[in-house]
Computed example of a mutant assay.
Amino acid sequence: MDVTQTVPGTELVRRATELVPLLQKHASWSEENRRMHDEVVEAMADAGLFRMRIPKRYGGYESDTRTLTDVTAQLARGDGSVAWTASVWCIPGWMVGMFPDEVQDEVFGTPDVRVCGTLSPTGNAQPRPGGVLLNGQWGFISGALHSQWQEIIAMGAAPDGTPMPLMMLVPMSDLEVVDDWHTAGMRGSGSVTTVARDVFVPQERVLPLPAVLQGQYASKLNAESPMYRAPLLGVAAASSVGTVIGLARAAREVFFERLPGRKITYTDYGSQAEAPVTHLQVAEATLKADQAEFHGYRVADLTDSKGRSGEPWTLEERVRSRADVGAVCQLGREAVEVLALASGGSSVYSSVPIQRIARDVHTVNLHALMTPQTNFELYGRVLCGLEPNSFYI
């Protein structure tokens, strides 16, 4: 592999766009089987999408978050579950770059490696000579069925014995997978539960989460990379918005595909396209989608500009990034709902994509780090001069 290669963001977006028909082809299969189709995963690997947030020395592209937003927005036009899973893989994959360089050598030694994960500390890690003994279970692990590693958070102890969350990397072969992903939306993401039973994790694959959240990373070789000059939650925020932006675009596309020839039942309109109510609906949905894109690209551009300059993030910028994500989710969901309600009774059939798009965007709005009202409250607290009431900023 030529580790000096670079791929412009425009080329990656073009490749993602070319995958849309394939994603649409397999979307129903993914819904039924509650996982991504193997052909889709292989096509994404061939397109280089799993290298976007990997250091260049391993053959990665170190793509900026605007590129990631553009790519996932295109993928969401084909299947929201694929876009969501791609963005999730990009976040823990980026997080691998925080670990000591020898750990990165181990993880990134696998071509097109995929790392899943979560920030929920639903496990415990007991100190052992040379590492920790891990037990626990973690839900909503998107992409686990196609991953080689999982980034895990568990409660451990600081050097003085006080409780402290730890971040670690564990091979998927050391974990059990519980097939429990029976959901209303994002079914194709395969976001199953994983379980650790007395798994030993060597110390070099363990980092204190408080230090990570403050940008204190263990890698020496990544220290000067613009991609790593950003707080974890800022990167997570910027990496997540593309899916909702793309779902709003997809809703508009499928609505207009069905519009020609459709009538409004029990009215004298011969064409839905001629009805003033339709004009109001498509204008409202389009403007909401436009607003969602403003907030999405604002947080992506903030992440990229800070990474290039090396300037530290202010507290207000940190919490605003969470608020921007909330705004993207709320506005994107509202845009989709307007068009879904305007799509008529026939749109409830599973063969009509708008119903899947509506379920997917609703599901994203339920994510704990993306729920609009929680994020707005956090932002408002800081604007009012109070301390943030969340560890995750």
Score class of each variant (00 low, 15 high):
5 Q>F: 14
8 P>V: 11
17 T>P: 05
21 P>K: 08
23 L>A: 03
23 L>S: 02
27 A>V: 10
31 E>K: 12
32 E>R: 11
39 E>H: 09
44 M>H: 06
44 M>V: 05
48 G>Q: 03
48 G>F: 07
49 L>V: 06
56 K>C: 12
62 E>P: 04
65 T>Y: 15
69 T>A: 09
73 A>N: 02
75 L>I: 00
77 R>S: 04
83 A>L: 05
89 W>Y: 15
95 M>I: 12
98 M>H: 15
103 V>S: 05
103 V>M: 07
104 Q>G: 05
109 G>Q: 05
113 V>H: 00
114 R>S: 03
117 G>I: 01
118 T>V: 08
119 L>C: 10
126 Q>E: 15
126 Q>N: 12
126 Q>V: 13
133 L>I: 08
135 N>M: 07
136 G>Q: 00
136 G>Y: 00
140 F>T: 11
141 I>T: 07
147 S>H: 02
149 W>D: 00
155 M>W: 09
156 G>R: 04
158 A>T: 07
159 P>H: 14
162 T>R: 13
165 P>H: 05
166 L>S: 03
171 P>L: 08
172 M>S: 06
176 E>I: 07
181 W>F: 12
181 W>N: 02
182 H>K: 13
184 A>Q: 13
185 G>V: 04
188 G>P: 00
190 G>V: 00
193 T>N: 03
193 T>W: 00
194 T>W: 11
198 D>C: 11
201 V>Q: 00
203 Q>G: 10
206 V>W: 05
206 V>E: 01
209 L>A: 05
210 P>C: 07
215 G>I: 04
216 Q>R: 13
217 Y>E: 10
218 A>W: 08
226 P>N: 05
230 A>H: 08
236 A>V: 09
239 S>I: 14
246 G>S: 03
257 E>N: 13
258 R>W: 13
281 Q>N: 12
282 V>P: 01
283 A>M: 15
288 K>L: 15
291 Q>T: 09
291 Q>Y: 15
292 A>N: 01
292 A>E: 00
301 D>W: 13
308 R>K: 12
313 W>V: 05
322 R>E: 01
328 V>K: 00
330 Q>H: 09
333 R>G: 07
339 L>R: 01
341 L>F: 15
345 G>C: 09
346 S>N: 14
348 V>N: 11
355 Q>Y: 14
355 Q>E: 13
359 R>C: 11
362 H>S: 15
364 V>S: 04
377 E>F: 14
387 E>V: 08
393 I>F: 12
